[in-house]
Amino acid sequence: MSAIAMEIRRNRLVMSYLIVAMLLVVLVVAGGFLSDRFLTWRNVGNLFQQLIVLGMVSLGQTFVVLMGGIDLAIGSLVSALTVFLANFLEWRPDLVWLALPLALVAATAVGALNGLLTVVLRVHSLIVTLGMSSIIFGATLMYRKEPGGSVPRAFADVAYAKIAGIPVSAIILVAIFALAGLWLQRTRSGRSIYFVGGDREAARLNGLPVDRIVVLAYALSGLCAGIAAIFLTARTGVGDPRIGVALTLQSVTPVVVGGTILAGGRGGVLGTFLGVLLVTMLNNLLNFVNVSSYYQWVIQGLIIIIAVGIHTSRRR
């Protein structure tokens, strides 16, 4: 790719980010007018506290989408992990130090398995992760049909902890996004995700270990789902086999809103972060102005279509 083409692409991405950022500003201003509770310190704090679950699964989805795939197993994986965590911690509340790494390792392994299956069987990622999602969901339901388990107090506090008034989870989220952004932009392995997503065959011909990069992207997605599950379990205090059902599709929305193209190779984590903010704030505001969650679904669907419409027409 020539330097000029690269530059144009970069500028277009910046434009995408600017559009989303502008929408965010509009939303904040409109929110301030529509509801006097929206811009309170308390609400903003709450909002940032909620950010981490959607933020993490969307980040994981971003890696996979940039690499040219899609991960539809995220929701089932998060559900399964909350069930594991809550039941394990109910059994041995003292073993938090063991449960959390175990959950993260398991999540990463499941993600890597998704990647391995797409690479080895050469089946479309949509089919592989859809199938895996069904398998994980079925296995989780066979273990526990109803929400259950519990978590020790100290672990639950993690979800609500604050440093100088700022939720710890939000700090962690921003730090992880910053790390992810740096990794994608500045390191060889990070950039290779873009190459594989842009043109897999060309990446292969250039000597990139394509298969390993694919597995890596899925493994990272699994890891992100693991982190999301930890905070989700800490917040809700139970393991719910159905809690993640909606998360899979919700994880796609911020990615698309943030300008990452589903075909792969173009986009970035900053866009996803802005997308997460936009979606979360919009839902929060709609709650304040008493728009039923039913219409929030309609709005979410429209957002996807409009976002894709904006970004694709810009691409033309």
Binding site: V252, V256, Q296, V298, G301, I305, T312
Partner: peptide, 30 residues
């Protein structure tokens, strides 16, 4: 959406799925 607006089938039908769901629930009130 797919043919004229170049939206990927996945996203177009996904959005349609959620929109129909919202309209349906709004009509029935759950």
């Amino acid at each position: 959406l797919v043919a004229r607006r170049n939206v990927s089938p996945f996203l177009a039908t996904l959005a349609m799925m959620i929109i129909l769901q919202g309209i349906r629930f709004a009509y029935t009130g759950g």
